[in-house]
């Protein structure tokens, strides 16, 4: 198992390099003078000249890439001009908030989605199945940002159950109950679409498995039906559900950008959008590379989980 994890980690290196190359190439699409673009239109000529020298923009592209890569490997992602602090500090701080939001949403959508899929499959064509199918259809059709706005209207403005936005109350907040109160709506809004997708695919994965011969064997043994469904069938279905979870994690992370805007959540997505609007390109570049790298590592974790579940995968 350890050697399998090491092998998967090694195989991530070319992917990570590829990500840096792609980001580098995209950033070289910037029309006009990059230093002006990076510093924004308010930059003084001295600053532009200094940045050009710092970035080595007089050097050839390949050389520039390796300088950039070398700097990143030592943890130097440059300085954000709009915030006047190192990019890495800002990204890590914001990423923390995103992880809380996206992590909660991902846990929610995995649990709810699989549960809904299992119930739906076990009660195929029954009332529960029809109700779940209907809710899921609505869930995957509402854009998460619209859903978030409607939730604010209903639960925060009209019913006053939950705070409108932010991560903590400005006065007297900061503890865990306060965080949970602020987290509930954005996490649910972010989880909605992914829950629907996971529920649908879990349902069909379960139906596929329930027709297999080994389910009949379990029933012939006299295994109680609850255990046939939650044990035998779900375990086999997880083999096809886990890769879906990996893909959905990417969508949850993407959706977090919208939800962070709607709920004023101080995460990396909102930071990226602000940075784009302020043309703070070093911040965008650093944020994209760091988040993408984390996503690659997460997918390795998914692969490892899969190999733990399925003994037929060669480790």
């Amino acid at each position: 198992m350890v050697s399998y994890i090491l092998k998967r980690l090694l195989s991530a290196i070319p992917v990570l390099l590829g990500i840096t190359i792609i980001v580098f190439l995209i950033m070289s699409l910037i029309p006009g003078d990059p230093a002006t673009a990076i510093l924004g239109s308010y930059a003084t000529p001295e600053n532009v000249e200094k940045l050009n020298r710092d970035l080595g923009l007089d050097k050839p592209m390949v050389q520039r890439y390796f300088i950039w890569l070398g700097n990143m490997l030592t943890g130097d992602f440059g300085r954000s001009f709009s915030l006047n602090r190192p990019v890495i500090d800002e990204v890590l701080e914001r990423f923390n908030a995103t992880l809380i939001l996206a992590g909660t949403a991902f846990t929610l959508c995995s649990l709810l989605g699989i549960l809904a899929g299992v119930v739906s499959a076990a009660r195929q064509y029954g009332f529960a199945d029809k109700a779940i199918t209907f809710v899921v259809l609505i869930g995957i059709s509402v854009p998460s940002f619209f859903l978030g706005m409607m939730m604010i209207l209903l639960f925060a403005v009209n019913l006053r159950w939950l705070p409108v936005s932010g991560m903590f109350a400005i006065y007297g907040g900061g503890d865990l109950p306060d965080l949970i109160r602020h987290l509930t709506m954005p996490a649910l809004a972010l989880a909605a679409v992914a829950t629907g997708v996971i529920a649908r695919l879990s349902r069909s994965a379960m139906l596929e498995v329930l027709r297999q011969d080994f389910i009949r064997t379990a029933r012939a043994k006299g295994v109680p039906e609850r255990r046939v469904i939650m044990g035998h069938a779900l375990r086999a279905a997880m083999v096809s559900i886990i890769p879906i979870l990996g893909i959905q994690a990417g969508f949850v992370l993407s959706g977090a950008v919208y939800i962070e805007i709607v709920f004023q959540w101080p995460g990396v997505g909102r930071m990226l959008v602000d940075a784009i609007l302020k043309r703070d390109l070093l911040l965008v570049q650093g944020g994209v590379v760091i988040v993408a790298a984390c996503y690659v590592l997460f997918n390795i974790a998914v692969d490892v989980a899969q190999s733990l579940l399925d003994p037929r995968i060669k480790t």
Binding site: I19, I22, M27, G250, L253, S254, V288, A292, Y295
Partner: peptide, 10 residues
Amino acid sequence: AFPYILLALA
């Protein structure tokens, strides 16, 4: 390997 929005934002 990118979450799609990162690529679009970049």
